[in-house]
């Protein structure tokens, strides 16, 4: 399933160190999180869309992979619009629902902000290989290598588990467990199938752990066959991230829409 999101091939951004990419994206995210306003979100969103070709993503691919995120952002905006404390003219008032011009603006800003936070993560992951990420986390961020590599190895089994999920579904149908029926029956069938998968997953992981230990894994000292490195490109990534964040804030302050979350929610 992960393959659906990670692109093979060498785009410019895929050559940057995962850690710097992460820091850049996180910076943008934090800045956007501080304010709910449509200006900062729109500016950031615009820059992000410009960057997508550098990660090898086309608008079509983006839509195919990103539509659930877009839908989620829309829903988030809706719930904020009807639940935020009302300010300005009341536009709609039905029982517990009420939308005012103030809450609508908040909802809209919220929706755009949601997108501007979600999309760079898609960008980040579509140009980052998990193996490179693990190398960077263990060698550069100095996270304990046993945990990083154990997780990386476990991740490899996930694709396998997706296949096994399908096989178990068929195997259970061959035993008379239907995946069709009332919602309750379907929930029960799914729980049973999940349990079957969990058993296989733990068996496999236990065997994988034995394989890893038998290859000497688990000691304190280890060398790295491939070095995780920084290059001048990483400076550009950091500068780019900072510029986008700064541009978003500057535009919002300039337009007078900068609206700190705590202030916005009173």
């Amino acid at each position: 399933m992960r393959a659906a999101l990670t692109l093979r091939g060498e785009s410019l951004l895929s050559r940057a160190n995962p850690l710097t990419k992460f820091v850049a994206v996180f910076l943008i995210t934090l800045v956007l999180a501080l304010s709910i306003d449509w200006v900062s979100a729109t500016v950031a969103l615009g820059f992000e869309l410009l960057l997508f070709p550098l990660a090898g993503l086309t608008p079509l691919l983006l839509w195919q992979r990103g539509w659930p995120l877009i839908l989620a952002a829309a829903l988030g905006g809706w719930s904020t619009a009807i639940l935020a404390p009302d300010t300005g003219t009341i536009l709609l008032d039905v029982g517990i629902w009420s939308i005012s011009s103030g809450s609508l603006e908040l909802g809209l800003g919220f929706m755009l902000r949601g997108l501007a936070i979600a999309l760079p993560a898609v960008l980040l992951m579509s140009c980052t290989d998990p193996t490179d990420l693990a190398d960077a986390l263990a060698q550069k961020a100095k996270l304990p290598h046993r945990f990083v590599l154990g997780t990386l190895a476990a991740m490899r089994l996930v694709g396998l588990m997706a296949e096994e999920w399908q096989t178990i579904g068929m195997a259970r149908r061959a035993r008379g467990v239907g995946s069709r029926g009332t919602p309750l029956q379907r929930i029960r069938a799914t729980l049973g199938q999940s349990f079957g998968l969990l058993v296989q997953a733990i068996r496999r992981a236990s065997r994988l752990a034995v394989t890893m230990e038998a290859r000497g894994f688990g000691g304190a000292q280890r060398t790295w066959a491939r070095e995780s490195t920084y290059s001048p490109l990483d400076i550009w990534v950091l500068v780019g991230g900072t510029l986008i964040a700064a541009a978003a804030v500057a535009a919002a302050i300039g337009a007078g829409t900068w609206n700190l979350v705590w202030a916005a929610t009173g």
Partner: peptide, 17 residues
Amino acid sequence: RVVDIVVAALIAVAGGV
């Protein structure tokens, strides 16, 4: 132990899926 790490990670990654 190594087995704790790998099984925990798999539960977690499966959880991620």
